[in-house]
Simulated assay, not measured.
Amino acid sequence: MTAAEELLSIAERATSYDGVEPFSEQTRLALRHTAPEHVITSDGVVVAGAHVADDGAVELVVDPAHRRHGFATRIVQGVLEQRPSARFWAHGDLPAAQALAASAGMTAVRNLWRMSRAVEAAPPIESPTVPTGFTARTFTAGDEDAWLDLNRRAFAHHPEQGRMTRADFDERAAEPWWDPAGLILVVDDATGELAASHWTKIEAGQHDTGEVYVVAVDPGHQGHGLGKVVTALGLAHLAARGVIHIDLYVEGDNTAAVATYRRLGFASDSVDVMYAALGA
């Protein structure tokens, strides 16, 4: 078993122990073909480690059976020695993560909210009417590059989402959860261009929960209410698939998006916090 595979195994145990996944989807995918840069072993067995993304975002995990030995502190110090501007995700912002950040002189620089709602809760999930001049359809083969162009425009200033490449898309489309019918597109009838999209997700083997995976609206098509419409279309799709709960992630400072999701029945569930050294 490689160090990356051992680290992914530790992440599974940590998820069961903490009730929070220590690694994002991006990190789990990256560890399939990238060795972790910072690993701690004990008696030849990996007990802790971290993945450092190209942009300096860090996710780390310590095996629940090997905690309280300062391993997380060693990893944080080692990363900061090499990359003083590194930023560390604390998924769920658990008390131990808060204490670690404080001891390392780090402060919160970003909040990512998880919001959720029950399908049967109010307001009811209904399929909306698409505005005149636009048509909704599902993804078909050949839409990949057009979707990526839309995604880049919609997330031009987003630290992760706006950099998605064709390879990133193809990797996700090869996952067991991929369903072309779950990627809903709104097309401008006059130009044929994609104006908005809602990529939904139902993890393989987790049929009770659906996710608002990515909602994108072309900045040039704002003002038509397409964000709310395409979001509602995706929610209706997930409800039709029989999920009981729907989750989503949204930047805590995106007040417009948070307000839209609250109107659609979502409430804050948990928060992921990114920490960085003071002045970094």
Rank of each mutant, 00 (worst) to 15 (best):
T2Q: 06
E5V: 07
A11K: 03
E12H: 14
E12I: 08
D18W: 02
S24A: 10
R32W: 15
H38E: 14
A48Y: 09
D54M: 03
E59L: 10
P64I: 12
P64L: 14
G70R: 07
T73A: 14
V76A: 00
R83K: 14
P84V: 00
P84C: 01
H91K: 13
A96F: 12
A97K: 01
T107R: 09
A118M: 14
P124A: 15
S127E: 15
T132P: 06
G142T: 04
R153V: 04
R153A: 15
A154E: 06
E160K: 01
Q161N: 07
G162Q: 04
G162F: 05
R166I: 12
A167I: 06
E171N: 05
E175I: 04
W177H: 11
A181H: 15
L185M: 14
G192P: 00
E193F: 03
K201F: 00
I202A: 09
I202H: 08
T209K: 10
E211H: 08
Y213A: 03
D218F: 08
D218H: 05
Q222Y: 03
Q222R: 12
L235Y: 09
A239C: 07
I244Q: 15
L248A: 02
E251N: 13
T255A: 14
T255F: 03
A256I: 09
T260G: 04
R263G: 11
F266K: 01
A267M: 14
S268D: 15
D269R: 13
V273G: 04
A276W: 03
A280G: 12
